[in-house]
């Protein structure tokens, strides 16, 4: 349950960050970048999010295994 809470918090952070971008002045620099080149950077952002999410999850599993190893020792 704890890990879920963490993940939710991260997801919420990401979403709120975005909304800050979207709410800012109409042509903020992030906005401009995202809409340039046929909005390809949106795809990049999506891919980075997935990668980050999976890496965070991987780190969590890693820590769990570390704890188990300590118990075994």
């Amino acid at each position: 349950m704890k890990k879920l809470k963490h993940l939710i918090a991260i997801a919420a952070l990401l979403i709120t960050n975005l909304s800050v971008d979207a709410q800012g002045p109409k042509e903020s620099s992030v906005d401009q970048l995202m809409r340039s080149n046929g909005r390809i950077y949106v795809v990049v952002a999506v891919m980075v999010t997935i990668l980050l999410g999976l890496i965070i999850y991987l780190v969590r599993i890693d820590r769990k295994i570390g704890k188990l190893e300590k118990l075994n020792r």
């Binding site: 993940l7 997801a11 975005l18 999010t49 999410g53």
Partner: peptide, 17 residues
Amino acid sequence: LVFGILGYATGAIWMSY
């Protein structure tokens, strides 16, 4: 659930642009 959360996060990015 983890993949679902990632789906929501990426969906939010895609949606907002």
